[in-house]
């Protein structure tokens, strides 16, 4: 599903090496946690898989497609679902509109988009907030809307960068339950970056990163 070969990422003209010679295979429908301390390179790795950044060396293949040879915006729109540490909802759009955003540019009709978004809001138990703006929601509720947004395009891969980083333990557990439930329902591959072992141990496999390298 995801094959990473000899991946290296450097910043500042090579002065900072964020990732060094990473080799990794992630299977279809696998739930993987990437753990590491701050600055270890775990978010950089997630950004590379998500096509948000490009490697200096090495290749990333997702479903047999080399990311350096495909249109990344299309890949992000059709294959990926992103959940960020901060919900990153657009404040002047309603919850329903926020969920519809990734569908812009798809062939779906306006009513189809609305239906899909509404179904997901129901799935995360927030349909009563459909026409409310994010400011009226709690942190946990906003993150649930963000998960609905990440799932609206039926992604094959869900990437979550510290999805519970800003939440208390109760909300964290709820968010992780929701992510796992949706991953199982859709058979998507789920990759969660975290520094919290309680979150990481829920995964099928834990990958530890230290100083830009995978720990063996």
């Amino acid at each position: 599903m995801i094959t990473i070969k000899n991946l290296t990422k450097m910043y500042d003209k090579g002065r900072t090496v964020a990732l060094r010679n990473i080799n990794l295979d992630i299977e279809d429908s696998e739930f993987v946690s990437i753990m590491g301390t701050s600055g270890s390179g775990k978010s950089t790795l997630l950004n590379m898989i998500g096509g948000l950044d490009v490697p200096n060396e090495g290749t990333i293949e997702v479903m047999g497609e080399n990311l350096s040879k495909i249109k990344l915006s299309k890949y992000r729109r059709e294959t990926l679902g992103f959940v960020f540490q901060l919900h990153n909802l657009i404040p002047n759009l309603t919850c329903l509109e926020n969920i519809e955003l990734p569908l812009f540019g798809s062939s779906n009709s306006s009513s189809q988009m609305k239906d899909n978004a509404m179904n997901l809001l129901k799935a995360v138990d927030l349909d009563e907030f459909a026409n409310k703006h994010p400011k009226y929601l709690s942190g946990g509720e906003m993150q649930r809307v963000a998960i609905a947004r990440a799932l609206v395009n039926n992604p094959k891969v869900i990437l979550a960068d510290e999805p519970t980083g800003q939440l208390d333990s109760e909300n964290s557990e709820m968010i992780m339950d929701l992510l796992e439930e949706k991953q199982k329902e859709t058979n998507a591959t789920l990759i969660v970056v975290t520094h919290d072992f309680e979150i990481a141990k829920r995964a099928d496999r834990i990958i530890k990163i230290r100083d830009g390298q995978i720990e063996r």
């Binding site: 915006s73 992103f82 812009f104």
Partner: peptide, 10 residues
């Protein structure tokens, strides 16, 4: 950045 990361083109 968020819009682009969820698939919006430049």
């Amino acid at each position: 950045g968020v819009l682009k990361s969820i698939g919006w083109t430049d």
